[in-house]
Design a protein around this nucleic acid. Structure first.
Length: 718
DNA sequence: ATAGGGTTAG
């Protein structure tokens, strides 16, 4: 017996020192004697040895199985090492023998397995495992949950749905998967399926939504304009006697956004009052939403009321709020003006002056708070002043701005007004290639892999800090930027935490929006590394940059045409192991499209898919747009079909893009076909549709005109 | 894991 034990020890020692190579593998076919000397711990030790090849482990395991009853742990180890290395072909037989042996894996291992199956898109294996679990009849709520969750991360909505219906009986009210499934269905705009799941759950005895579940449903119904359902659920939440569920900030915000979107601003204001009376406090989004909606519907009184409330509760209004207010005031001016003109002129001046006065005060306030008075703001002011023929008012504007740092630029604005209106500055694009060479895809791949391999940060891509940008969006902020630049932060590497949302901070601390405001200013000047340092500063202040902060950098770069910089950000992301998520890829494609390199898009897609990614609706839209702009109409249609067959419902953006792309390609009939398809699908056109249809209409007219002239030539051969 | 980050026209 002792000998055998020793042999076992030798075997383990050999395996640990990795001398157990292929030639030795044969010796694994050891006599029964040795097998008896192998104790369970020894087997496990061998199976958990990292340096043994998975297929060798499998052979060893099968051999030992004929002598020992394998433990769950042994199965778990073999399965994990196989799937970890991507060897999925042996998994089914292992699962089979596991059932034979009556072995029960622990839930944790089951979960790990499921995830690896799903991540590698081996969905059939996942289902086999599920059968195995069902066969055991153990309480598998966590497994179901994680299975559905995993499927959802792969955008396998229909699979997740079918599992949901299959397992409806085992679902209990604690099931988080239901909420996740509902969210996914809402995002995919699958109303019918959403309703099915919703009603099934409600019919189910003993099931009740938690607050999250309620919120998800309220938001979804709000998105789809079903206010009745929203308020029924809302009432249920409030009436809940058990005290398990009550409306929270998210509930109120979802309701308010829904109401605002549907133009029911008065009702939104009622909900807002209710929120104020509740235990909860409105946040930045509540205010921004409400003010925007009030201004859009010319409820300037309400807008001002909410605005004051916002400020008295210590929230800094942002550019959107200010611009909404300005816009609202101006539009209101027009309305008043129109009425008065109708009643025949006279007191024009006073009213306008009153409105303009308010607008100018807003600008002053913005500037005094150090806020970005951007080109949009100033231009809209100037346009309005110009329209009213009150050039003397420009001086008033100047007076306000002089206190800030805008004066130099504004002088130039005044001088070059006309030119700048026609040819908006600040939008110059450099269109420099994102990839240095002519653009084989191998270049991209090598870049991507290099980005992952490199460990030292290249901090040298910063463009010079000097030089006055005449058309900067905010000279005031530029000054700040330059100050920070000269302070010279010694750069420790910033370490973005991944994934999680940034929690709303109190009104006085830095919030994410502020970070993004600063970022966009630095980024507009191409000061990437400065922006990176900014991450540090804010990180220290308790704001953690997340992957979508990176994405917002990318976004501003790509939109302005700074592809070189965008690429640098992507590289940084690679170095920081910040996940390049689907949004990142989306912007790469967008960038490629703007560069006129839609031909590279499909190659980028391959890498996305290889990394376990998938195409969602935004991605499809972006792709369709990029391909369409490049005139690849065939591919566009193929993609559209692929999109629909994978169960994704086209949305307004999709249809708008399709209509535009086809009409620009001269395929007016097809453009019209998509318009009809859109209406048939019950998809409501928006303002973008209008502009696009204007274009289509003009094209059709042109065509008619051409035909008419051809016809008249025929009629009149002389 | 709930709203709010990535897509369309001018």
């Amino acid at each position: 017996m002792r000998q055998w034990k020793q042999l076992g020890e030798v075997l383990v020692a050999a395996s640990i020192t990795n001398t157990l190579s292929h030639s030795h593998a044969a010796t694994l076919n050891l006599p029964r004697a040795v097998a008896l000397g192998l104790t369970q711990p020894l087997i496990l030790k061998i199976l958990s040895n990292q340096s043994i090849h998975p297929s060798q482990k499998l052979r060893f395991f099968e051999w030992s199985r004929s002598h020992h009853n394998p433990s769950p742990a042994a199965y778990s180890l073999v399965l994990r090492s196989l799937t970890g290395a991507g060897f999925f072909s042996d998994v089914p037989s292992l699962l089979h023998s596991m059932t034979e042996d009556g072995v029960v894996l622990d839930p944790h291992s089951l979960n790990l397995l499921l995830h690896s199956f799903i991540f590698s898109s081996n969905f059939n294996l996942a289902f086999q495992l599920l059968d195995y679990v069902q066969h055991l009849q153990l309480d598998a709520t966590t497994i179901y949950n994680s299975l559905i969750a995993a499927l959802l991360t792969k955008n396998q909505l229909s699979l997740a749905l079918s599992i949901f219906f299959k397992l409806l009986d085992t679902v209990d009210s604690k099931s988080i998967a239901c909420n996740q499934l509902l969210v996914a269905l809402r995002k995919a705009d699958m109303r019918v399926e959403f309703k099915q799941v919703f009603t099934k759950l409600r019919e189910k005895k003993g099931f009740s939504f938690d607050t999250w579940g309620y919120n998800v449903c309220i938001h979804a119904f709000g998105c789809w304009g079903d206010l009745a359902s929203c308020f029924a659920l809302f009432k249920e939440m409030k009436d809940d006697g058990k005290g398990l569920v009550s409306p929270d900030l998210c509930t109120y915000n979802s309701l308010i956004t829904a109401l605002c979107r549907l133009g029911k601003v008065d009702d939104a204001l009622v909900v807002w009052e209710e929120l104020n009376a509740s235990v909860h406090q409105p946040d930045r989004f509540t205010y921004t939403n409400l003010i925007h909606a009030c201004c859009g519907t010319f409820r300037m009184g309400d807008a001002t009321r909410v605005f004051n409330h916002m400020q008295s509760h210590g929230f800094r209004p942002d550019t959107l709020v200010y611009n909404s207010l300005l816009d609202g005031h101006f539009k209101a001016t027009k309305v008043v003006e129109a009425c008065q003109l109708f009643e025949k002129m006279v007191q024009e001046g006073l009213c306008k002056e009153g409105q303009l006065e308010e607008a100018l005060q807003l600008v002053e306030e913005m500037e005094s708070r150090g806020f970005t008075v951007d080109l949009v703001t100033i231009t809209s002011l100037l346009i309005s002043i110009h329209r009213h023929g009150r050039w003397d008012w420009t001086d008033r504007l100047m007076k306000y701005i002089r206190e800030g740092d805008l004066v130099v630029s504004v002088l130039k604005w005044k001088a070059g007004m006309e030119a700048s209106m026609k040819n908006p500055p600040g939008k110059k694009k450099d269109y420099s290639p994102m990839f240095p060479s002519k653009g084989d895809f191998s270049d991209i791949v090598s870049f991507m892999t290099r980005a992952q391999d490199t460990t030292n940060i290249n901090d040298g891509e910063e463009t010079s800090c000097d030089g006055i940008d005449e058309w900067s969006s905010s000279p005031h902020m530029d000054k700040l930027a330059n100050q920070m630049c000269s302070t010279g932060y010694s750069s420790q590497l910033f370490t973005p935490s991944r994934g999680q949302r940034v929690q709303e901070k109190g009104p006085d601390s830095f919030d994410v929006d502020m970070v993004n405001t600063f970022l966009s200013i630095f980024l507009a000047k191409g000061k990437l590394s400065l922006a990176c340092k900014l991450f540090e500063i804010f990180s220290d202040a308790g704001v953690s940059p997340v992957s979508y902060s990176y994405n917002s950098i990318m976004s501003s770069f790509v939109k302005k045409g700074y592809f070189t910089e965008a690429w640098a950000v992507l590289t940084e992301m690679g170095e920081q192991i910040c996940p390049a998520d689907i949004a990142t890829y989306n912007m790469i494609i967008q960038g490629l499209g703007k560069m006129g390199r839609a031909d590279l898009a499909s190659a980028v897609l391959d890498t996305l898919l290889k990394q376990g990614g998938y195409l969602d609706i935004v991605m499809y839209n972006t792709l369709i747009n990029a391909l369409g702009k490049a005139g690849r109409i065939k591919e566009v249609n193929k993609l559209f079909e692929q999109m629909r067959s994978s169960g994704i419902n086209p949305d307004v953006v999709t249809y708008n893009t399709l209509i535009e792309v086809h009409s620009k390609a001269g395929l007016l009939k097809d453009a019209y076909k998509f318009l009809k398809m859109m209406l048939d699908a019950g998809c409501t056109p928006n303002h973008v549709t209008d502009t696009t249809l204007d274009y289509l209409g003009r094209e059709i007219d042109k065509l008619r005109f051409q035909r008419a002239s051809i016809l008249s030539e025929k009629d009149d051969p002389s």
